[in-house]
Amino acid sequence: MNTRANFDQSLQELKTLQLKMAGEAETAVKNAMLSLLNRDVELANKVINGDHLIDDLEYEIHEKALMLIARQSPVAKDLRRLHVALKVSSEVERLGDIAVNIAKSTVQIGNEQHVKELIDIPQMMEVALEMLTDAITAFYSEDPALAKKCAQKDDQVDKMFGELVQELLTYIPKNPDFTNQIIQLAYVCRYIERIADHATNIAENIVYLETGKRYNLND
């Protein structure tokens, strides 16, 4: 007889909800990136208008997690699991906001030709997306090794961010008519860098869930 079958089922439902939220945010981030690369304003608007679904899921997760804390007297890993549910859902909600920010930059740029062929930005996006996917997979499988591996890529993204922004700023004097676009692209680089940070934070929470120890994986 499983003496906590009811609680275990509630925890599983909570995890399913978290994975649903993470999936929605991952899709929003991907679509926002695609909208920028393809100058697809329609897709960008879809991302902007869909963000409330992610916000609603965060609210639902917080309500469920708090109720389980109030009613089920969780301790040890059960307690960490609920703490992590609250923390990770807030990280994921921020990812949704970042997707909206990227989508808004797409709208700002509109149909305007890109000032140069976008090569480095997609590469940076790819690394950040890999990190995000790894973080979500590590969360699904509760795998601290994968979480740590995910976080190791953060330095790479930070480095790309620094270099890209420097490069973008050099375009402004040569292409003053494209100043708005260049600033938007610099913003986008900043947003991508933040995606990697949030993926790292999710990874840190997975390590905490499994080990009970706090690691700063950004070091």
Partner: peptide, 12 residues
Amino acid sequence: PISTLKIEELIF
């Protein structure tokens, strides 16, 4: 405590 949790699960 464990017998208690068994009864609680049973109630559910």
